[in-house]
């Protein structure tokens, strides 16, 4: 308790008069935060309006307009408000302002250059417009028989198919090769899209659609 003795009268040691407060004056109590918009005691003086200032003002407004029109003003691509529409991809004029500015690359680092996408050769997938064959009653019974056969001789079938299967594999390899080339072309697209939505699960619905797979070689 040694501190007590010295601490006594600490409050009194601050002479209020030295701080400029008279004996009778009471310090105002602050019970609430200051108002958000305190009343202005002094009104600001009006702005100077000379011809020069008006001219500069017009210049400023014009300059801002021309900056907005210039290719250096980068607009934010429109945010998708509700749903992703198919047509969004084809909306023109989102960033067309940026296209008419060709930087002189000797003055900019190479990493800022957007890699130009090679235009991908479009392979039109031919729609299958063959009419579905009307199954005849005999065919159905034959097919059933055939299926029974395949079930029974599944082991044998594989051996028989061996030769044809090789050919098919080669075909597939070729196709895959082509696909890989395509993939290289639009690497970035693939990067952005994950394969979450792709469905690898085969629910068996396509089983037996032999008629549509005519091109893929004979079926047994």
């Amino acid at each position: 308790m040694s501190g007590r003795g010295r601490g006594r009268g600490r409050g009194a040691s601050i002479n209020l008069e030295a701080l400029g407060l008279g004996r009778g004056e009471i310090l105002p109590t602050v019970a609430q935060p200051p108002p958000l918009y305190p009343p202005l005691l002094f009104k600001p003086v009006p702005l100077v309006t000379t011809d020069d200032y008006n001219y500069i003002l017009n210049l400023k407004q014009e300059l801002r307009e021309s900056f907005h029109k210039s290719p250096y003003f980068i607009k934010e691509p429109n945010k998708v408000k509700d749903i992703v529409r198919y047509s969004d991809k084809y909306q023109l004029g989102l960033n067309d302002s940026s296209t008419n500015w060709m930087p002189d690359w000797t003055r900019f680092p190479s990493e800022l250059k957007e890699k130009v996408k090679r235009k991908r050769a479009v392979h039109f997938v031919k729609p299958n417009i063959k009419k579905a064959k009307v199954a005849q009653v005999e065919d159905v019974s034959k097919l059933l028989e055939k299926l029974e056969d395949t079930d029974a001789k599944s082991v044998n079938m594989e051996e028989v198919e061996g030769h044809d299967g090789d050919e098919e594999d080669k075909k597939k390899e070729k196709e895959e090769g082509e696909e890989e080339e395509e993939e290289e072309v639009d690497d970035e697209d693939v990067e952005e899209e994950t394969d979450y939505n792709l469905d690898y699960f085969d629910n068996g619905e396509e089983y037996g659609d032999d008629d549509e797979d005519d091109d893929e070689g004979p079926t047994y």
């Binding site: 250096y72 980068i74 930087p103 003055r107 800022l112």
Partner: peptide
């Protein structure tokens, strides 16, 4: 892509400068 465009604009407008570090990155 957007960042690159923004940087191009900023460099062209004399707001941003660039330099190479010892490791070669900019």
């Amino acid at each position: 892509k957007q960042v690159k465009q923004a940087l191009l604009t900023l460099i062209k407008q004399n707001i941003v400068t660039f330099s190479q570090t010892k490791s070669g990155s900019i």
